[in-house]
Design a protein around this nucleic acid. Structure first.
Lengths: 131, 131
DNA sequence: CAGCATCCAACTGGATACTG
DNA sequence: CAGTATCCAGTTGGATGCTG
């Protein structure tokens, strides 16, 4: 909604270049959340069954797991395969598209690894001032 | 908290390698959210005043803006400078640490740019099936 | 101008019970 | 096993009014 009228004479009113907005922002929200990231990383290793994931992720409820898996499946990052067995068995697998997230994830992981200590120092300093 | 005891013999029970958990996950949550990302990108261009940001970001409320700025400041990504003027003026600037987020952000932006169309096709297919 | 404080509606996510 | 459905407490975030 913002910046649709690119009115000249009002510089600095539009979004900055490199800003992630709109559909791209929404997409990131669907992928970068806690459970989505954990599930994708887990499934990158090997296919898993529903309850395997539930046990592995630790802390996730069945409701959240279902929702997260559906969202990933809808975006084409994860595939759902119903195995013909009794009782019923379902397998979730990463898709080639899902695998392309590996690089962005590793970049983020590297950033946190590189700067977490520094961030924590800033936090301590900030909290000390506002004590 | 999970996976602290890397017990052999229970394969698949720990978090997958590359998984972002704990303090690192929490840090990403503080930075990658909608307002945080928009603010950091904006401030990467030039310093801004409080109401400048409020006007530019478009959609953010004063409360959310204050909260987001405080959070970024606490993590050492943004600096708050009170200018000696009347009426009071406050300037927010990106820190060197904040600038190091440029590369991760660009990686994410590149990923969404590269794959958004494909994701949207998957969504359409998924929604068509479940109609 | 740059906030803080408060109220409240909407959404999120956990716990629980039930089904093919 | 792999879910769906429901209830409900806690959190989020917008709107509003006030201050130095």
């Amino acid at each position: 909604m913002a910046g649709t009228s690119t009115k000249p004479g009002t510089p600095g009113d539009q979004a900055a270049p490199g800003t992630i907005v709109g559909p791209q922002r929404e997409l990131l929200d669907q992928i970068l959340d806690k459970w989505g990231q954990l599930l994708l990383t887990s499934l990158c290793q090997q296919p898993r069954r529903f309850n395997e994931l539930k046990r592995e992720i630790d802390g996730i409820t069945q409701k959240s797991l279902t929702q997260a898996l559906r969202r990933l499946e809808r975006n084409g990052l994860v595939e759902r395969q119903v195995l013909e067995q009794r009782p019923i068995a379902v397998e979730y697998r990463i898709t080639p598209l899902g695998r392309t997230l590996d690089k962005p994830f590793l970049t983020l992981l590297a950033w946190t690894a590189d700067h977490l200590a520094e961030v924590e120092q800033h936090r301590d300093a900030y909290d000390a001032d506002n004590r």
